[in-house]
């Protein structure tokens, strides 16, 4: 079939260089494009709507608050006038999340390195798969385990720490040891382990083999190779993983509702009965809340939303700024 006789896709004389099809204003293409654009915009709409509706519900509650919402520690929504504030629970949220991350990050980087560079390949594959599965275990399961099975060992550990290290303020409490910041943050750290590990493992695995081999060829030991090739390459990815872990830890609800003491105090001590977070407070008090109480809980949720939003914005800004240097490893 020669070129001359072939039907062209354009409208016009077959075989001739007819005009391109007229671009229709409201054709399928426009419709499809419009639909996908709308779907993409939904994300922006949702974020704005979350802020708007939370603020709309929170403002009346904060207006009715008999004390300062930001500095009051207690949560008496049933009093007249109600007295409640986020001081204690907001500090508790940050405290628990930071302690948990301090424990989880070094260990999960160790596991990630183990899986990416130290373990035999077959073992690493199986274990990596298991870590991914553990990341999918719902938080309520960790909460139940933390409260029913893990509280015993932590009680012993708390007693031991207090006995030998009571001169350090964070180990100051002499009991009774049960639900505490210590228990909550260890459980939270254990929950974070699979999440941070699987993120950082991906990052470590992406290190260019050429860089690693170059380091080894120059006589570096394995650890020096990790320090000079793997870490610098993975740094933005590690920072991103830690920040995402922090975001998750700040919003964690059920596991902490089951393992924290639920008090409204601000204390350095982490062993004694106490500890609370915004999310755990909402979970524990939603059932009994009146209209006033629900408004107050939504107001505290707004604070949590703001905190996590800021953390996430910082994390994303870091990733976006670093992405161009490392080719989008994050």
């Amino acid at each position: 079939m020669s070129l001359e006789t072939r039907e062209t896709t354009s409208v016009g004389i077959p075989g001739g260089g007819g005009a391109l099809p007229r671009k229709r204003r409201f054709g399928a293409e426009t419709l499809f494009r419009g639909t996908t654009t709308a779907a993409g915009t939904v994300v922006l709409v949702i974020i704005v709507a979350i802020a708007v509706f939370l603020i709309a519900k929170a403002v009346p509650a904060i207006r009715a608050d008999g004390s300062n919402f930001l500095t009051e520690k207690n949560w008496f929504t049933g009093d007249t006038p109600p007295k409640f504030g986020v001081a204690a629970i907001a500090v508790g949220t940050v405290q628990t999340a930071v302690i948990a991350l301090l424990m989880a990050v070094p260990v999960s980087m160790g596991i990630a390195l183990f899986l990416s560079h130290y373990a035999p390949k077959a073992l690493a594959n199986v274990l990596g798969f298991m870590i991914d599965l553990l990341a999918a275990v719902p938080s309520v399961v960790f909460g139940l385990w933390g409260r029913d099975s893990f509280a015993g060992p932590v009680r012993d550990l708390s007693g031991w720490l207090h006995h030998y290290f009571r001169w350090i303020p964070i180990f100051g409490s002499d009991g009774p040891y049960g639900k505490s910041v210590m228990l909550g943050s260890i459980v939270l750290a254990i929950m974070m382990l699979p999440i941070i590990t699987s993120l950082t493992r991906e990052v470590f695995l992406q290190t260019p083999t050429a860089n690693e081999e170059a380091a080894l060829a120059l006589g570096a030991t394995k650890w020096e190779m990790v320090r000079t090739a793997v870490f610098p390459f993975g740094r933005p990815g590690i920072i991103a993983a830690v920040m995402l872990g922090l975001g998750r830890a700040l919003g964690e609800t059920i596991a902490l509702a089951l393992t924290l003491g639920g008090t409204y105090t601000i204390a350095l001590d982490i062993l004694g009965p106490g500890g609370n977070t915004v999310a755990a407070n909402i979970a524990n008090h939603f059932g009994e809340a009146t209209d006033m109480g629900v408004g107050a809980l939504i107001a505290s949720g707004l604070v949590l939303f703001a905190i996590t939003l800021v953390v996430n914005l910082i994390a994303r800004a870091i990733i976006y700024r670093r992405r161009e240097f490392v080719g989008g490893s994050a």
Partner: peptide, 24 residues
């Protein structure tokens, strides 16, 4: 903007999503 806020939205705690649906 959409790409950026999809990333940010990943970090919204489940309890905040719940509160939003409650209010909305």
């Amino acid at each position: 903007a959409i790409r950026f806020f999809v990333d940010v939205m990943t970090g919204i705690p489940s309890i905040v999503a719940g509160l939003f649906i409650l209010a909305f």
